[in-house]
C-alpha cells in the first residue's frame, strides 16, 4: 500500500487538552504500520483547512479556549461543510464536537451557535460525569474515560454512537455520542482511539474505501492490539469505580 493519507487536526492547542493528540497518534501509527504514509496538518487560527483532508479531527478544550478559536471556526465552516459533503469523516470529541452541533447552552443561559454539521445540541449542566465509560456500538464495545458536564440531545432522526454499559454518556441514561454517515462525535476520552483499535480501524477503513486502497492490520499491529486489549480489560473491571469529585 502506498497511499498518502492527510489528517487535519483542528486547533491542537486550544482543543487538545484531553490527550487529543493520542487520537491522531493512533490513526497515524496504525496506518504507518500498514505501510501508508501519513501527513498530519494542524489547523490553527488564521490557517487554511486542507481541501484534500481524508479525516478531520477536533478535540476537547475549556470554554475559555473556545473564545479564541470561535471566529476562525466560523470562517472555515464552508470548507468544513464541503469536506463533510464529500464524505470525508469527522472524528469529534468533547467541546469541539459540541461546536459542530446545533448549539451549546451554557450554565448562565447564554447560547453558543454551532456549525450545524452534526445532528445534536448541547446543554452544559453543573453535575459532572467523571470516570470510566463503556459503550456497546455496532462496531463492538468501546471503552474510555469521560469527563464532562454536558447533556447531548440528539435530533429525533439521529443515531447515537452506542448504548451505555457503564458511565454517563449523553446524560439520558442510555446513549452515548452521535453518528452521521462515517462521522462520529463522542464524549468517550482516554483518548478513545488508541484504546479501541476496532474504532480506529473503522475510521481508517472509511478513509480507505473513499480513497480506494486496502487496509488490514497485521503482525506489526500485534503489540498495539495486545496492550489495548489488556488496558480495556482493566478499564472494564474498574469501570464501577466512581471518581469522587471534591
Amino acid at each position: 500500500m502506498s497511499a498518502t493519507v492527510t489528517l487535519a487536526q483542528l486547533y491542537p492547542e486550544e482543543l487538545g487538552v484531553a490527550g487529543d493528540r493520542g487520537n491522531i497518534m493512533a490513526i497515524r501509527e496504525r496506518l504507518a504500520r500498514a505501510g501508508a504514509s501519513v501527513s498530519v496538518v494542524e489547523h490553527r487560527v488564521g490557517g487554511t483547512l486542507p481541501s484534500d483532508a481524508d479525516l478531520v479531527l477536533i478535540g476537547n478544550g475549556p470554554l475559555s479556549a473556545i473564545r479564541n478559536i470561535y471566529d476562525d471556526l466560523q470562517t472555515i465552516a464552508p470548507e468544513l461543510r464541503a469536506l463533510a459533503g464529500n464524505g470525508v469523516p469527522i472524528f469529534a470529541y468533547g467541546s469541539g464536537a459540541e461546536l459542530l452541533g446545533h448549539d451549546v447552552t451554557l450554565l448562565d443561559g447564554a447560547v453558543i451557535a454551532g456549525l450545524d454539521v452534526l445532528p445534536f445540541r448541547t446543554t452544559r449542566v453543573t453535575e459532572r460525569k467523571v470516570g470510566y465509560v463503556i459503550v456497546d456500538t455496532p462496531l463492538g464495545q468501546v471503552v474510555g474515560f469521560e469527563d464532562n458536564a454536558s447533556l447531548w440531545q440528539l435530533d429525533s432522526d439521529a443515531a447515537a454512537f452506542g448504548t451505555l454499559v457503564a458511565g454517563g454518556g449523553n446524560g439520558d441514561g442510555t446513549h452515548e455520542g452521535v453518528v452521521l454517515g462515517s462521522s462520529i462525535a463522542t464524549q468517550v476520552g482516554g483518548p478513545v482511539l488508541p484504546l479501541n483499535p476496532l474504532l480506529t480501524d473503522a475510521l481508517i477503513r472509511s478513509i480507505a474505501s473513499r480513497r480506494d486502497f486496502d487496509y488490514a492490520p497485521g503482525t506489526a499491529h500485534a503489540d498495539l492490539d495486545r496492550y489495548a486489549t489488556r488496558a480495556r480489560e482493566v478499564i472494564s473491571a474498574n469501570a464501577k469505580h466512581v471518581f469522587s469529585r471534591i
Binding site: G22, M25, A26, E29, G190, P194, L195, D223, L224, Y227, A228, R230, A231, E233, V234, I235, N238
Partner: peptide, 13 residues
C-alpha cells in the same frame, strides 16, 4: 500500577 497497560499502549505508539 492499575494503569500499566494503558501506559504500555501509549509508549508502544
Amino acid at each position: 500500577g492499575a494503569k500499566a497497560w494503558q501506559i504500555a499502549l501509549r509508549l508502544e505508539h
